[in-house]
């Protein structure tokens, strides 16, 4: 017999992948990738899928709708991790907003990196952005509810300012269940992404590198206690 935590984990994983496949019907996925990494759970490998459509909204706007997720398995303790989401982003001139609904048993990935397993949970992430040319501000928020018996609820609200100078720089406050500061950088061509956060648990850093015209992305995450490195191979 499977233990309850295993059951919920497998169910979540199955729900995620069924949702991904059913939603797409016979359509091929836009991007498939194989994550391969090393972290607190030892060596991990798995499969990631994503699909996104983009369409125009008026002359100066567009919207993106997509789904994505991954399932990985760790060698060391035979654990399975999954995370999946559906999202919509709307841009109208210098105003943008997005909403993402997600579920899984890892923390919401930061730059594709997830360090910890977590209780199975469902949640939502939303963001509003307003630019004034090269400077702007916005508000992001995340809420997640654990599917476990405890039913723990976490949320965070992140007001931020952002400016564009050789890339996009964002400085944010983290309020809610935890308190902290954050800084992120996105290189203009998306080749380098960097995220540094200082919250209750301490400092964390994440970096994602995309190799030009290569089917790989390299990522790394580091906190005061844990580290993960990975390669995602897109095929």
């Amino acid at each position: 017999m499977l233990e309850p935590q295993w059951r919920s984990l497998i169910i979540l994983g199955l729900i995620g992948f069924i949702a991904l496949t059913v939603c797409q019907g016979a359509m091929a996925f836009e991007a498939e990738d194989m994550p391969f990494g090393f972290g607190p759970q030892g060596w991990q490998t798995g499969l990631g899928l994503s699909q996104e459509t983009i369409r125009a909204r008026g002359l100066l706007g567009y919207e993106k709708t997509g789904i994505g997720g991954y399932l990985t398995h760790s060698e060391a303790n035979e654990e399975t991790f999954s995370w999946f989401s559906g999202h919509k982003q709307v841009i109208m001139g210098n105003i943008g907003y997005s909403l993402e609904l997600f579920g899984g048993n890892t923390h919401r990935p930061i730059l594709s990196t997830f360090l910890n397993g977590a209780d199975p949970h469902v949640g939502a992430y939303g963001e509003f952005s307003r630019m004034y040319g090269v400077i702007g501000h916005g508000l992001a928020g995340r809420a997640q509810l654990s599917v476990s018996e405890i039913g723990e609820f976490e949320y965070s609200i992140m007001p931020y300012v952002q400016f564009t100078r050789q890339g996009v720089w964002r400085f944010s406050l983290n309020l809610g269940s935890s308190f902290g500061f954050g800084m992120s950088y996105q290189e203009p061509q998306d080749k380098v992404k960097l995220d540094i956060t200082l919250v209750n648990e301490g400092l964390s850093m994440h970096v994602l590198l995309s190799l030009p015209e290569q089917p790989f992305t390299l990522g790394a995450g580091l906190t005061q206690h844990q580290a993960q490195v990975f390669i995602r191979y897109f095929f």
Binding site: L59, L60, Y62, N94, G96, S129, M131, G133, G136, Q186
Partner: peptide, 15 residues
């Protein structure tokens, strides 16, 4: 084609 540079996402959208 119309190329639109969108500062809010720092991308160029081509349609």
């Amino acid at each position: 084609e119309v190329w639109v540079f969108q500062p809010v996402t720092n991308v160029i959208v081509v349609r």
